[in-house]
Nucleic acid binder design. Sequence first.
DNA 1: CTATCTGCAAACCGTTTGCAGCGTT
DNA 2: AACGCTGCAAACGGTTTGCAGATAG
Lengths: 148, 148
Amino acid sequence: MIETERWLELLEEKGGRITGPRKAIVELMVKADHALSPVDVFDQARSKYPKMGLVTVYRTLEILSELGLVERVHQQDGCHMYLRAANGHEHLLICSRCGKAAYFSGDDLSVLIDRISSESGFVIQSHWLQLQGICQKCQPKKFQTPIE
Amino acid sequence: MIETERWLELLEEKGGRITGPRKAIVELMVKADHALSPVDVFDQARSKYPKMGLVTVYRTLEILSELGLVERVHQQDGCHMYLRAANGHEHLLICSRCGKAAYFSGDDLSVLIDRISSESGFVIQSHWLQLQGICQKCQPKKFQTPIE
DNA sequence: CTATCTGCAAACCGTTTGCAGCGTT
DNA sequence: AACGCTGCAAACGGTTTGCAGATAG
């Protein structure tokens, strides 16, 4: 997978080494379509690299997040999950039942942002938009209370 | 302050008791204009109620959050801060230097949401929009790296 | 008077750190 | 060969729980 290689190259450019554990984590994060906790990553990564330690997961997620390849996902109970970072102006849409993630783009907040900026006196640096919903797969059981 | 009483009434309706520690925390959260960590709340509340315990802060914030009066604020390093909850369709604007919060409304995401909904197949339940910027007071030292 | 709330101390648990050995380059 | 990376075990720090006494209603 090309994307996996791109991540590993970026890691290398930054002076990092490409190792088994890192490859396993990168491969998994590149194709993750659900938000994953460090322990989820740990469990999934061990099937590719059985010696994997949890500490390595934390350390690797931190590096990937410094590289802007991965980011925390915020949910009502906190923000302990990770996901591939949004590219450019993508935003996240996340299923509140199963955690399935989808990205979208095409929001245009510039008018709003200009207005808020002049009204509030803030210099606005970034915005963060996330939609919560129920994905197609979870809809038969629709509108049940979210898991957990 | 009327708002304080409204919170306390809601607390009472829910079957809770109005006590000194709770009053102190409610008063403080009602007028907080910066995001506060549990320890911040603890420190500030002790000036009104010196016997206050940290545990009571956690328990009270949890209750207020169940009542929808208070909510977690999400920031790049996590979401360990609390603030008065947004009313209706307000959204949060937060200073990345000092944590000063302001609310705004007037976003209209309905067109976007309809589009994303039909494209993705998700039933969209809620959206969450937050702006990050630098407040007026912090602008003289503008564009320095955020504190911490 | 009773049930709830409080503060303390201890338990918990996710995350981070120190370190000796291993693997990449 | 050198330096970064890894896993283990231990430390850490924020949050939660158990409990006996205090207090609101």
